[in-house]
Design a protein around this nucleic acid. Structure first.
Lengths: 224, 224
DNA sequence: TGAAGAACTGAACAACTATTCAGGGCTGAT
DNA sequence: ATCAGCCCTGAATAGTTGTTCAGTTCTTCA
């Protein structure tokens, strides 16, 4: 053999792969999953359509990896916010607020990742994504229960319900479009976080305090 | 003119239209929206594919009407259950329970109506559906607030969040499949109703009582 | 520099279904 | 019985995109 993958080539290939994924992500952020079509993504990434298939076996694989990527980021953000909180209840509040802020700051992307119809089957990837996020929330609820701050409950179901409430009210089709008014955005985050905390059994007064504490550090993110 | 639509013909046409809609509904109940394709629906309704287009201008119209139909039924059920309750809080609990029971007893259909990807655009119809149901829930929350049973709040947002929680935890991709165990089904309905009531501010102890009252009459429906 | 092999291109292909429409059959008035 | 007009049929059409692949370009090493 007179050809060998040199380090430089390996790096270029990896860069191209990332460029394609980034192009897909940009497209999704701008126009939702509907905009993630092979030809347009290829153009964005400065490659030909066929090249995409040298990196991803199919569109389903491309989108699945996109979903996994975005989920990884979100999960990390949730953990960071929760771990920085002083106690289990604050951690739960911080986690919920983080989810709310994230989906609001990238509504189209979030909708695409979560629920937007796609022509190929990405249910498996979406399932993994939801499971991870829900699992994280569930374990935070669990910690608060063990600390005696919340009544015992089916934490997995509660976590799923919480996420459903957040998503539906913030990026679902009925969600009001407040994307230009950052004050209303904060209000929405607060209101929904309050609902979520009360749902799992935080007493009203205490919940209000937790919400205020959790929303303050998240303010900066709203602009992102 | 030597031909005129006689009463008999009018009736037959109406029956055929209903048959097509019913076929679409059956298909959706069995295999979700993916199974609602013109040719198979036509076969189910004992007509040719072309005939469907004599009754519905396009697939989008057919599915939109299907969504409207199902929504009408659900809304009626919610109102019936809520109106039969002794007070505003019970009415809210009954409404929430009714939604839960309905989606659980027809999971595939509910998923199709609510969120399953469809190749044609039915967002408008889905939006109307959600708005109607959410509006009903919102007005029940409002009644409870006015009666002094709940704290003042953004009822529209709360209603949307409640529905999101119900749907996600009962028919979403993470929902456990308990379709064979009616005991678990009841548990799920109870748990989720409890979460929903607490979310809008019903005190825990009181919420538990309301849930029990609301679930009892709904039991019969679970089998449907 | 040349040869071998890999990567890239982009036009052609494939598959899936909604939609159409020319022809056949049915209904109702005379 | 007859015919005008509507209804129904279902094979053919059409439009949309994901996917392929033969040919071209680029990279590596002797």
């Amino acid at each position: 053999m007179v050809y060998r993958r040199t380090h430089q080539v390996v790096k270029r290939l990896a860069a191209r792969r990332s460029a394609i994924l980034a192009a897909a992500r940009d497209a999704a952020a701008e126009g939702g999953m509907a905009a993630v079509q092979i030809a347009p993504v290829a153009i964005r990434a400065n490659v030909a359509a066929g090249t995409v298939y040298r990196y991803f076996p199919s569109k389903a694989d491309l989108i699945s990896e996109l979903i996994a990527d975005v989920s990884r980021d979100e999960l990390a953000a949730i953990r960071r916010a929760a771990d920085a909180a002083p106690g289990p209840s604050s951690a739960l509040a911080a986690a919920v607020t983080t989810v709310a802020v994230h989906v609001l700051s990238q509504r189209k992307l979030a909708w695409g990742i979560l629920a937007e119809p796609v022509d190929v089957d990405v249910t498996a990837s979406r399932l993994v994504n939801r499971r991870e996020i829900a699992g994280e929330i569930a374990s935070r609820i669990d910690a608060a229960v063990r600390a005696g701050h919340l009544p015992a409950q089916d934490t997995a179901l509660a976590a799923t319900a919480l996420l459903g409430a957040l998503h539906e009210s913030l990026v679902g089709p009925l969600a009001p479009d407040n994307s230009d008014d950052s004050g209303k955005l904060r209000d929405a985050v607060q209101t929904v976080t309050l609902l979520a905390l009360r749902a799992v059994g935080v007493m009203d007064a205490r919940a209000r305090g937790l919400v205020v504490q959790a929303v303050l550090p998240a303010k900066a993110l709203v602009g992102a």
